[in-house]
Design a binder for these strands. Structure first.
Lengths: 342, 342
DNA sequence: TTGTACGCGTTATCAT
DNA sequence: ATGATAACGCGTACAA
């Protein structure tokens, strides 16, 4: 038995009243008599009436949908961000439309247009690695759609941004190792062209300085690819070169794991001989043997903070107020398993 | 400089023509003169006109959006499913609206209603662990919205379903171990109440039988919680009990890792002494030391197949044809690192 | 207390 | 080749 898709008009017809009365009854308008309300509600229930939010959105010029565009989704960080965004959106009574640009600037452009076409009330976006042109972003911003960029942001546009504090995270990680008694800490650094690499490197250097430990350039080992095999290979050659060190701060979780594998393979014990802290996914870290300490790029927090900022902006927009773009910096969390620290 | 949100009417006014002409010009209707088209397109470009798909959807009673509801998103399987769905949807010219029920049946109900409210043209859903009532599902199905359930499906409703072949996967895993020379294969089994547990157990048993290896109930070890600590603890006691075995087929990736940790801790070598194959996330498996062979629950394939089935259904619906629900079974993949197999 | 009429942005139908 | 009008489903100012 298939029911049709009823509208208010259908209810009105069956009850011999006008659709405006139905509309008012449904939203419990004080002018409507109780018996009319009862009749309408009863029939609506029977018919399993559900409002058409397309019509609503068109009417109100407001969709109660926010959009989010991420470069990829099969990645704990972005999945966490989305999760955080969702939770805030639900509280505000908004739905979330998600697009995955798949690291393609062309797709990103299409996505932004699609988002505007469906008249999202606000947009969250993390840019593709290759995004250079920002015309599509400017376009939607010019139309007055509140927009917040997160994590992969661009400096060439004046919009609100939410980013993680890579410097602070790196500082925290290095400081943590020092506090554990490490004196000679290796840093597995990331690719030069990414700003996160230099931020993390600087955090590492700064933590050493603050602890009166001289920075030794020999301890800074580049791992530009950031792959497991590269890290493993690099670490092995470092160990074999008899470089002395008692701790490792890895630029990401994969290099941290690679380092651990290399150490174990060459008979070193983690964390008894060498302590490791890496940036990245702590869930992964916890499954390792032994679990690693890790600096979590707190995806959920990024999501929550971005969404909050967006809604703030949406509300200002509704009240025709000026909104000055803000850059929010979210702190990283050091996830630590005590047992894994020497 | 903020541009307004222009409509066709705005273009028409500026050009002193009617909005219907604009509409036709924009979609390159043959009746319209070339010069009018040029003028319209030029102005549309200048104004950065973007169509309002809300109005379009209302008009056509078709939104070109499909919905997907997943219980969680911070989980490689579901993230992969979404990724697969997106790729198919893009090809078909559809957008995807994602909701996360967060394993809450109440949220799931809200989500389904929201999806219908925004008049998605089709819905993909994987149920919450606790979902018992299916009224919300029946409701949207009765309204004629094409729906496909995937992975977490219910037997109590006649809709299209896409599931993984757990039996086949378990068979494949066990058979693989036998082919590697294993004779006494332990199975770490899952919770009794889930059908996947018994399916996997049966696949395990069947593979042994087909290879003329008697099933030994002592080798079937329950790990109902499926946690790392449970698996580690259980495996240790098994090893200490001097039970003889040379291979492990784990019900999931986490128990596989737990087993590996236990083995290594007690001085056994993987895979030299014991080979392990687990169901689950192969990316995780590859980061382990040594990498584990794993039976991947192919999320992308599930996503792709589900979406394809949904679009098939959407098209039949458009042509007022009958559509008989189908259950599709997606095969699992064995992800293998040759080096890790003895 | 309820009904009428209009508009949100678009397209299809029917005129001209 | 172009314009006027109605319709999609809803809410609301205005009228009764």
């Amino acid at each position: 038995m298939r029911k049709a898709q009823y509208t208010m008009q259908d209810i009105a017809n069956q009850l011999g009243i006008s659709k405006s009365t139905v509309s008012r009854a449904l939203k419990n308008h004080p002018d409507i008599s109780q018996e009319t309300k009862d009749a309408v509600n009863k029939l609506a229930e029977e018919m399993d009436y559900q409002p058409n939010s397309l019509a609503l959105s068109l009417r109100h010029k407001k969709s109660f949908v926010i959009g989010i565009i991420v470069p990829e989704i099969v990645h704990d960080f972005f999945a966490n961000v989305i999760s955080g965004v969702q939770s805030v959106a639900y509280e505000e009574g908004y739905n979330v439309m998600i697009c995955i640009s798949n690291e393609s600037p062309e797709q990103e452009e299409v996505d932004v247009k699609a988002m505007y076409s469906s008249r999202v009330d606000g947009l969250l976006i993390s840019l593709t690695k290759e995004t250079k042109k920002l015309k599509h972003i400017e376009s939607i911003v010019n139309k007055g759609v509140p927009l917040v960029m997160f994590d992969r942001v661009s400096e060439n546009i004046n919009v609100s941004k939410v980013i993680t504090d890579d410097f602070q995270g790196a500082f925290m990680a290095t400081d943590h190792l020092v506090k554990q008694g490490c004196k000679k800490i290796v840093h597995l650094s990331g690719p030069d062209n990414l700003s996160i690499s230099s931020l993390r490197l600087n955090g590492y250097k700064d933590a050493l300085s603050k602890n009166n430990i001289p920075v030794d350039d020999n301890l800074i080992i580049p791992c530009p690819e950031g792959t497991l095999s590269e890290a493993t290979k690099t670490m092995k050659s470092i160990i074999n070169s008899n470089l002395e060190f008692d701790g490792i701060f890895a630029n990401n979780d994969v290099t941290a794991i690679g380092a651990m594998n290399a150490l174990k393979e060459l008979g070193k014990k983690v964390p008894e001989d060498i302590s490791i802290v890496g940036f990245g996914d702590w869930r992964l870290s916890q499954l390792l043997d032994p679990p690693l300490s890790s600096i979590e790029q707190s995806g959920i927090n990024i999501g929550v903070e971005s969404a909050k900022l967006l809604f703030k902006q949406i509300k200002e927009e509704e009240n025709d107020k000026e909104f000055t773009p803000i850059t929010k910096v979210v702190q990283n969390n050091l996830i630590e398993r005590k047992s894994s620290i020497k």
